[in-house]
Write a protein that binds this DNA or RNA. Structure first.
Length: 209
DNA sequence: ACCCAGGTGGCCC
DNA sequence: GGGCCACATGGG
């Protein structure tokens, strides 16, 4: 793992509160963060950036607020499903997050609309558990560095990275954030910007130059 | 008029 | 286990 280029240490996930992190994690599913920001702004304006408030709001109203983030009907349902489960089974997030990581992860995965990436985002950035998030940026960056031949499944790639990194919460957050910054700025699907990319020769595109 | 974006579930084989 | 599709908006 020869990648330790830095954009500065990133303690990351755009969102002040755990509630906001969880809401953002669901809203950003296959959606640009720009669109999520619009939805978050709508929720903030209505004081709805809060899981308890989400539990109380009419789902139609919720749909309208999060509309800019796309897939708004299913995402409204997913947010509702999460808070119904949370407050139906626990007093609050602290109590939910007190569960052990493997149990907690399974629990999150059992909820509709919470897949591995969303679950791990919640685990890492809201619950502050040491786990690594694999997203499209991470996959793409990794595949351009040295995976190439073999395709890796989610958990395969995750355990590969976890094995290479010292077990450190801050490092996991930072390292995932590095991949996202890398992906947004240079390692894009179309028109990769290789000239100033820190990966440079490590990347197959950089090598072609 | 396309293609893309910090995925997930359902259905099929 | 995988491959394909619907889900929806906003930006390039």
């Amino acid at each position: 793992m020869a990648l330790r280029k830095r954009f500065g240490f990133l303690d990351w996930w755009p969102g002040e509160t755990r509630d906001e992190v969880i809401i953002g994690a669901i809203l950003t599913q296959n959606t640009s963060w720009k669109n999520v920001e619009k939805a978050i702004a709508n929720l903030r304006k209505e004081k709805m950036l809060d899981l308890k408030k989400i539990a109380g709001i009419n789902i139609r109203k919720l749909e309208v607020l999060i509309k800019p983030s796309g897939f708004y009907k299913q995402k409204a349902k997913r947010l509702k499903g999460f808070v119904v489960y949370l407050f139906g089974n626990y007093k609050n997030l602290d109590e939910l997050f007190d569960n052990g990581v493997p149990e907690l992860r399974k629990e999150l995965l059992s909820l509709n609309g919470i897949g591995m990436e969303t679950a791990d985002s919640i685990l890492l950035y809201a619950a502050e558990k040491p786990i690594f998030v694999i997203d499209a940026y991470t996959r793409r960056s990794m595949s351009r560095i040295y995976l190439r031949r073999k395709e890796f499944g989610y958990e395969e790639l995750q355990s590969l990275i976890l094995r290479e990194l010292p077990k450190d919460l801050r490092l996991y957050k930072d390292f995932h954030a590095q991949f996202v910054e890398l992906g947004k700025r240079y390692c894009r699907k179309t028109e990769p910007v290789c000239a100033e990319c820190p990966l440079n020769k490590a990347c197959k595109y950089g090598r072609l130059r």
